[in-house]
Design a protein around this nucleic acid. Structure first.
Lengths: 117, 117
DNA sequence: AGCTAGGTACGTAATTTAACGTACATTCGT
DNA sequence: ACGAATGTACGTTAAATTACGTACCTAGCT
């Protein structure tokens, strides 16, 4: 299943900003910013585990449709990753600024990401 | 009237991003990014003039409440300005990244802003 | 084959958002 | 003092967002 990902040039500022304008999704982006692929369930646990699976699916969709993350089926899991290269190509510096700002305001749960400078 | 402006430390990423995640408000920010103060009506005209006054008032409110703009009564007009210093102090580089990205996607209407190299 | 884990799809409800018209407040100009 | 300009406030409506529960699908395990 897993709906379509927009191509790089289909990504729209409006969608990226409103996707990241939700606190849960901003935290998800922070978690994924550590790099690599993360299973949906594992990311869900870092959010406090008090969010239903169907609600998380909704957030994956918003992030995917906006072009912020990529979703890839792997066995019975679905792996998530930040579309860092695509976002950087389209909006140089934007993602880092947002992540730096977010990190300054909220530390990433269950991880040890450090603020830039 | 003109509701309260959040202090610099009351500004929240979540609110800034969702405020700018609306295409109309993003354009407003681009217009105000030219600097100085702009009257509500003048800004409204640059948006196409097909937006009602009450709808614009709603957008001014969202932008004000999120800390993106400042509103100041001056005579019978209300002047708007971008809270660039406050945003830069709280989230260094964020506003410029967003404005650069927005400018790359949509030129600012009725103005001649140039992209930051 | 049958069972379980990991997610998605669907339907639903509550809240928020966006947009508008109308009425009102304030201030400038006459 | 009066009238027009400039916005805000309020009430309303339509649509989008957020969140859940339940049902279901697929892959891996036994």
């Amino acid at each position: 299943m897993i709906g379509r990902h927009p191509t790089t040039d289909q990504i729209r500022m409006e969608n990226v900003l409103s996707a990241l304008g939700n606190p849960i999704r901003l935290i998800i982006a922070q978690v994924l910013a550590e790099g690599g692929e993360h299973a949906c369930g594992a990311v869900g646990l870092q959010l406090g585990a008090d969010i239903s699976k169907s609600t998380l699916t909704h957030h994956w969709r918003v992030l995917r449709d906006s072009g912020v993350i990529r979703q890839r089926p792997a066995g019975r899991e679905t792996l998530l990753s930040l579309r860092r290269e695509d976002l950087d190509a389209r909006y140089p510096g934007l993602l880092d600024s947002i992540l730096d700002a977010a990190a300054e305001e909220n530390p990433v749960p269950h991880s040890s990401r450090q603020a830039a400078s």
